[in-house]
């Protein structure tokens, strides 16, 4: 179980990275390595070139861009750092809660936000959270820069909207999204496993406990992390309480789910319903996420 051979590159500047990407047909970016390395060890992937971006300057910061109203997260920010960032916690209280489910502290010391978004496991936590928060991703090649809304990021099962000559540079979140509460619930057999299913939701509830806005997404259920606009629509204008949550839960169960050797689509649909309801319960309890 040893990796096949490859050529190793460790660019120090974004320009060099992009030029390498433009030059090679068969290259893989090595970020935190927590998904790529196992696949290389098992020879499931055998790239001709590995481009290690751990040394690239300018990819590992988190900063608030007040002018743009964005919190900008470099693609190489480690999961451990995400959990500890006060700025991120302020803009997005769900992050520490969700990232605590990402693998184990040893893998979070290496794993990155960019790696997680590009690997795009349907059950991964970070794509779900970013989808829920309407993150915008900056993707760059040697010749152009463009932004991708998180809603457009997942093209298909583990297939993000990024070309082989492009790199994910930055993830931007709204700095003050105005949600009054958030909830994240994950169902896995063991702590740190990829979830069988997970659900996250955000609520904006007014003084009279009426839901002004809602965002709901589920992970691990469908081919890609999925927003549930119908369930969201059912909530808006309703009191933030059990009947509305039950209705949203019923809507969540209708998602087109995947099945595998262990769990059927029907079971995942059931979990989607249960977890959405539980996440909404959390979200309605307010913004205090400890």
């Amino acid at each position: 179980m040893k990796s096949a051979g490859f050529r190793y590159h460790d660019p120090q500047r974004i320009d060099d990275l992009l030029s390498l990407l433009g030059r090679f047909e068969d290259a893989k970016i090595l970020a935190g390595g927590q998904s790529l390395m196992p696949m290389m060890n098992m020879r499931f992937v055998q790239p001709e070139h590995v481009i290690d971006i751990n040394g690239v300057q300018g990819l590992d910061g988190i900063h608030a861009d007040a002018a743009a109203g964005k919190l900008r997260i470099g693609a190489m920010v480690r999961q451990k750092t995400l959990m500890q960032s006060a700025a991120l916690r302020a803009a997005c209280p769900m992050v520490p809660q969700a990232v605590a489910h990402v693998g184990h502290f040893q893998t979070r010391a290496r794993g990155t936000i960019g790696g997680s978004l590009c690997h795009l496991d349907p059950a991964a936590e970070l794509p779900l959270v970013m989808l829920l928060h309407d993150a915008v991703l900056t993707v760059q090649s040697a010749t152009e820069v463009h932004q991708v809304d998180m809603a457009d990021w997942a093209l298909a099962y583990m297939l993000p909207a990024i070309s082989p000559d492009e790199a994910l540079i930055e993830v931007a979140l709204p700095l003050a999204p105005g949600w009054t509460g958030s909830g994240f619930v994950e169902f896995a057999r063991r702590h740190g496993d990829f979830a069988i299913a997970s659900a996250g939701c955000l609520l904006d509830v007014d003084d009279r406990n009426i839901i002004r806005r809602a965002a709901i997404a589920v992970g691990g259920v469908a081919q890609v992390p999925t927003r549930l606009p119908e369930a969201e629509a059912l909530l808006v204008g309703q009191p933030a309480s059990a009947p509305a949550f039950a209705a949203a839960s019923d809507a969540a169960r209708k998602i087109d789910a995947l099945s595998d050797a262990y769990y059927t689509a029907a079971y995942r649909q059931r979990l989607a319903g249960v977890l959405v309801e539980r996440a909404l319960g959390q979200a309605s309890k307010g913004t205090d996420h400890g």
Binding site: Q34, P38, N41, D52, Q106, R110
Partner: peptide
């Protein structure tokens, strides 16, 4: 494949899986 943790070492003080790092 990064699942068992037997190979964990400290890199700059951080516990990491040595099979998942070149």
């Amino acid at each position: 494949h990064g699942a068992c943790g037997a190979c964990t070492v400290l890199v700059d003080g951080e516990a990491v899986r040595s099979c998942l790092m070149l």
